[in-house]
């Protein structure tokens, strides 16, 4: 697995406050990487270091195996959490200016802007001032400016905040396409459920420490509880519940189901597989619902925090 970005033992302090405590991460090339954690955990500090806005107190950052150099800003695209553009500047002028700051020539920037403006159907905005646009419209412009220089690493801080659902979907589609074209994406967010579906890898940051990282599927497997949510229609619910409790750990459950019946959360015990459970259920009634309760990133985060604080 080749890493586009390697973060090694990064420490960042602001006075007495430690923002990042010896954080190490590897961001695989061509992946979507979720940098997750609550507000104030240290995500933005880390992103600013990657963007060379601030310097780490110690530790190194390698981009494609080489330490970050000033010119590397041209290979990184960054959409900050707090979006912003010059309010009184025209859309086109502003986009050209920002693109040139990222190292594009004026002609090249113009060509690419035309492509994106056509794609988003906003060519008519070129001579409008940002203050004349709605927040959602300005966000589209900002997205274009972020990806225009075709960076190999794209960092989105709270990527979908401020977009309405339709535009959020449009942006998500564009981001995945950029990934397919070879870019690596970092999503940083405290709303973990918002990016869960898109992430291949995640890292959980809590109080300046990285507490978990790795492939999302692997982490989910590691944190699985082997609990199944079941819905069974049966003539004798009491008998079924008794039979289940004999072999499994059973807890009441409540979820929406079209048919009436017994609803339970059943956790597998040593020596039993999901097939055993399913066989038992089909013997005693009609199975309408059988789903493994996969832990959400939120659940994983809460458990990881508990484990981490116990260790500490």
């Amino acid at each position: 697995m080749e890493s586009v970005l390697e973060i090694k033992n990064v420490v960042k302090k602001y006075g007495d406050f430690t923002a990042l405590n010896n954080v190490s991460l590897q961001i695989p090339k061509g992946s979507v990487f979720g940098l997750l954690g609550p507000n104030g955990a240290g995500k933005t500090s880390l992103i600013r270091i990657i963007n060379q806005i601030t310097m780490p107190d110690s530790g190194t950052i390698l981009l494609d195996g080489k330490p970050l150099a000033p010119n590397d800003v041209e290979h990184i695209g960054y959409l900050p959490e707090e979006r912003g553009l010059y309010k009184s500047m025209k859309v086109g002028e502003q986009a050209l200016y920002l693109a040139q700051l990222k190292g594009l020539t004026k002609a090249e920037a113009k060509k690419r802007l035309k492509y994106w403006f056509d794609k988003f159907d906003i060519a008519g905005w070129w001579d409008k001032k940002i203050e004349e646009l709605s927040k959602g419209m300005a966000q589209k412009v900002q997205f274009i400016v972020t990806v225009l220089h075709q960076p190999k690493l794209l960092i989105f801080d709270e990527p979908f905040s401020g977009f309405d659902p339709i535009n959020a979907k449009l942006i998500a589609k564009e981001i995945l396409q950029l990934r397919d074209e070879g870019a690596t994406i970092i999503f940083s967010t405290h709303r973990m459920e918002s990016v869960e579906e898109m992430c291949d890898y995640i890292a959980l940051i809590h109080e300046s420490n990285k507490i978990v990282d790795g492939k999302l599927d692997d982490i989910k497997r590691a944190y699985r509880t082997n609990t199944f949510q079941i819905g069974v229609q049966t003539t004798d619910p009491a008998a079924l519940q008794a039979a289940l409790e004999e072999k499994y750990t059973v807890a009441p459950a409540n979820f929406k189901l079209l048919s009436e019946g017994l609803q339970l959360n059943v956790t597998l015990t040593e020596g039993n597989t999901s097939n055993n459970l399913l066989a038992l259920l089909t013997r005693m009634g009609e199975v309408h619902h059988f789903v493994e309760l996969v832990p959400s990133t939120n659940d994983i985060f809460i458990e990881a925090v508990q484990k981490h604080s116990k260790k500490a």
């Binding site: 963007n51 060379q52 806005i53 000033p70 800003v73 990184i76 960054y78 900050p80 707090e82 979006r83 912003g84 553009l85 010059y86 309010k87 920002l98 700051l101 990222k102 900002q142 400016v145």
Partner: peptide, 18 residues
Amino acid sequence: IEEKTSRIIEVIVSSVKP
């Protein structure tokens, strides 16, 4: 102050040195 309040500052300093 305008760059700060319009929040463009972070975009700019991710491209150039402050």
